[in-house]
Design a protein around this nucleic acid. Sequence first.
DNA 1: GCAAATTTGTTCGTATGTATT
DNA 2: CAATACATACGAACAAATTTG
Lengths: 285, 285
Amino acid sequence: MAQQPMYQQIAERLRAQIESGELAPGDQLPTELELRDRYSSSRNTIRDAIKRLTSQGLVETRPGQGTFVTRRIDPFVTVLSGDPRSAGHGDEAVTYLSDVSRSHRDPRVTTPRVEIQVPSAEVFRRLRVSSDTQVVSRHEKCYIDDTPWSLRTSFYPMDFITKGATRLLMAEDIPEGTVRYLAETIGVEQIGYRDWITARVPDTNEQAFFGLAHDATVFEIFRTGFDQAGTPLRVTVTVWPADRNQFIVNVGDHLPDPEYDVNVGGDLPDTAHDDKALSAGQAMQ
Amino acid sequence: MAQQPMYQQIAERLRAQIESGELAPGDQLPTELELRDRYSSSRNTIRDAIKRLTSQGLVETRPGQGTFVTRRIDPFVTVLSGDPRSAGHGDEAVTYLSDVSRSHRDPRVTTPRVEIQVPSAEVFRRLRVSSDTQVVSRHEKCYIDDTPWSLRTSFYPMDFITKGATRLLMAEDIPEGTVRYLAETIGVEQIGYRDWITARVPDTNEQAFFGLAHDATVFEIFRTGFDQAGTPLRVTVTVWPADRNQFIVNVGDHLPDPEYDVNVGGDLPDTAHDDKALSAGQAMQ
DNA sequence: GCAAATTTGTTCGTATGTATT
DNA sequence: CAATACATACGAACAAATTTG
């Protein structure tokens, strides 16, 4: 029976203190030197233990300051199953997990940055243009309450411009939504869309914008809009940090309000994931 | 202009070799001692570099053997937007990214492990039972081609049993599906469901079952089924490793086949995420 | 505004343990 | 059993970021 390495044991003991509430969100952990003395080990072993907690999002370290128990953000909950004929990205309904903070939320989107470019393989496949074709891209940064929320880039075929949808090229918001604008201007109507959901680590830009560690997780959702002929009219790629975003898909009509799922039990759940209870339900046979 | 630390520079150089194909999937990297000599650093610095690549899923190390470029699994693609009246978890359509391997796929589900238990907070809130209520749980392990694919646990209210749906307690598959069984036996019909999508790190059981590192990512999807009265009739929690699973949500009718999104360009895309091309589209202003 | 103290980040060296071939 | 390769652990020194006096 091999015993666990020291740094994992220390990580477990610190984790227990965090999950028991002995170390509350926002609290500073003892310094590395204090922990070294407390656990009679070396500073490097303590650092290995803290790295484990960091990569699981339980703590975050700030150079020159210390290590702190992560304050979890009340997650933003986005409904992906919207109106097939109108929904662009940005038109999604956003719900919140807790009642208390709902009224304080303030979504904000930057003015789009417009580019003519040759898109990535993932995009041109979905837009069904050949790999050396230029397209129009519109890139926006989304915030809620000044917290970086998502990065969104939409791609449109170039011939929408030549057909008259010239406002796609303007670096300004299209208040009525690009879907309606395309319908009114060049008669291209969206009859539905498909979301393709993946997860990966953030690249350097995303780390900087969202303030994420290099080993954090982001959702990357590809939304392809289709017209009457089943032709893609748009591909929107949105990147969302997994530490502050969740998604809902409703299938069928007349479902109860999602918020009803949340607060019925009375108190809010722990902000941390309830690994223990779930593990009990899913223990190996 | 601060220069990057050595271990990050080395990680970048190794990453470049991997993404250029100079180091192909499955290839062994030079040993830590060889890399130490090649980059004139210490073994610990090399190990820090490799840790970065490991946490991003680019390489995996095997004690006693070496470090190898990750072979990416051809992802399993699951459609979440199914038939509102019938879909349980397990009835989803599964698509595959590449044509070549499609015919070789062989999904398999274990015999359910049935328990009477008090569920986690996340579950009892969604099932709308009070926090000390017992429910029936049915837990299954799902494989595709003998690759661990997902862990699924469904929770049903206890009074379904007393009303006559006793097969929920049997540790055996319900071939027609539990949704139809409940409709035929006790007249509880599902009119729709809601999926709630989150991502987190795997717990110890999940690491062991899926063969994941402690800092990998799993999707956790809560599916709540609702009956005619808008009452939850079932909550299914499914855990899917992010390295081998993607999801599709179709909104609107008559969308083209998802597979059409994939192979039109001819060749398959790189198995690695195309960070570069996307970053170019999303660079900071 | 500056210097000192504190705290984490990086890098090296070394030794020993464990897994695999 | 021996050789190889990664894993753990300790110690040390200096760098960089932040706070404090």
